[in-house]
Amino acid sequence: MFDWLANPNRFNRITEKIQPCILFITIITLISGLYFGLFDSPKDYQQGDAVRIMYVHVPSAWLASFLYFSLAISCVFYLVWKHPLADLVSSSIAPIGALFSALTLVTGSLWGKPMWGTWWVWDARLTSMLVLFFFYLGYILLSNAFERKIDGSKTASVLAIVGLINLPIVKFSVDWWHTLHQPASIIKIGGPSIDDKMLLPLILMIFALSFFSLYLIVLNVKTKLIEKKCEALLLKSNLEEISKTG
């Protein structure tokens, strides 16, 4: 199955067909998520309209964690099975995940100020999300820090796998420690504890940002495949020139 997916030509052929569908689903879910989130969902009985920040904050946080998990899995495939597309997938995921973790921190801060009276606290959830952001940055910096690309990819992959330990801390920090951040209200035992009218835009926005990420990851992987082809062509023409002059 993975060998089947590893073929770059097959990857290009399949994604060529599904990319427009992914973009279409992204646009539809984003527009409807924004509509329901801003116009149709009720105010919170305590937070009032400030609760609407949830529709951009929670999907960003969810994506930041999920993309990190995908990044680490892709790194395992790269290190263990030398999967040809795995390194390209990891390096395509990293900037998108970093952006979502940065958005989580900023929108969380914008939500925290009116609700908690402060932009930032060194609370377990906030701190572990900041650490996740640093893991993303570390991956990006390390993968570009070496002269030989392969050395950077290997070192960055090891860091990404080590960073997996932070994911359960992000998720369960609100249960393990007393935090200012509220406990989980969607993925928890007993089902979601928020109103259906709030759950709908939240799910739509999660879908929108997930499909958006998928679209960008596919696009970035394809770009990297083309760049690799260009490098090979350049190398070939350089070698031909050397052999002619030699």
Binding site: L34, G48, D49, A50, I53, V56, V106, T107, W111
Partner: peptide, 22 residues
């Protein structure tokens, strides 16, 4: 937005702008 506009709108604008730029 009940006086929360300075927090809500920047959250949405920043998110959509970042996604658009990316």
């Amino acid at each position: 937005m009940q006086g929360y506009e300075i927090y809500i709108w920047p959250s949405y604008v920043l998110t959509l702008l970042s996604l658009g730029l990316l």
